[in-house]
Write a protein that binds this DNA or RNA. Structure first.
Ligand SMILES: [Zn+2]
Ligand SMILES: [Zn+2]
Ligand SMILES: [Zn+2]
Ligand SMILES: [Zn+2]
Lengths: 138, 138
DNA sequence: CTTGAATCTCTAGTCACTAGAGACATTACA
DNA sequence: TGTAATGTCTCTAGTGACTAGAGATTCAAG
């Protein structure tokens, strides 16, 4: 049996975050000591590791909730799981695409001025004021 | 003189967002009609366009606040402006890097199952449960 | 002058936490 | 067994950048 602090150390999830996950229904309500403190077993540790890993991969709490439901019913179809993973992948790809466009503009903008001049002549400020200086939409 | 709705149309910034920017101090308090409605002039339009553009490029409200301060003082050094732009660029690059790593893992994970099996055998769920299946840290 | 659209202020909700207060429980050591 | 340090409890509020909605007022067109 682990205290919430021990669980926190083992999973690198902060203590208030563990309580938050419980409140959100990602973790079942923990058993309590006679003094009302949470105690966890191996299953609790594994579930929290699952959540942590999925969060690290960018899944939302809601998505993780659905994934956990599936995990708890090993005989159900896993179609929903692959759907969730695929749409998460698509989201990540869309974000990368957008950020790459931003990177290009920002790199042009920040190269345009060495910071030794005066605001009135600054290419950075001029670029922000006028989108026509940009190569593309954002 | 533009109403807030006209300003919204011209800048593609939603009406409540314009009011929010005013509250945050990005926009000066607008002039009012006798009936207490906001009215804007060309300067207001330009400032809001500046904010919109900077937001599109990912700058935070706080950063934009500093940039606007500089814009209002054309005789000051623009060093801070280039610093802000450069650090924004670095942030974007860091995000891209992280997302590319995520993309690799997610693409492996979602390729690993066609969704036609059962949760108990699902590679997606197994991958989320066990980070050892991953190629790298996230 | 009436009608309908626009605008006003204010509060609360979003997401995934994080911070802090004040009270209570557990653990280690003398 | 006593005590001190650390851990844990619940609760509230704050983060960033908005978004949604209620209920009241104002504006513009016909
Ligand atoms: Zn400059
Ligand atoms: Zn642009
Ligand atoms: Zn599967
Ligand atoms: Zn992993």
């Amino acid at each position: 049996m682990y205290s919430i602090g021990e669980l926190s150390k083992r999973t690198k999830v902060k203590v208030p975050t563990i309580r938050y996950y419980e409140e959100m229904g990602l973790l079942p309500e923990a058993e309590r000591t006679s003094g009302n403190q949470r105690r966890y077993d191996k299953a609790g540790l594994e579930r929290l590791s699952f959540i942590r890993h999925a969060r690290d991969l960018g899944f939302s709490i809601e998505a993780i909730s659905s994934l956990i439901d599936l995990q708890d019913h090993p005989d159900r179809s896993c179609e929903a799981a692959t759907d969730i993973a695929t749409s998460q992948l698509e989201e990540v790809r869309a974000k990368i695409k957008r950020l790459r466009a931003l990177e290009k503009e920002l790199s042009r903008i920040s190269k345009g001025c060495n910071g030794e001049g005066v605001s009135g002549d600054c290419y950075v400020l001029a670029s922000l004021a006028d989108h026509n200086l940009c190569d593309r939409e954002h």
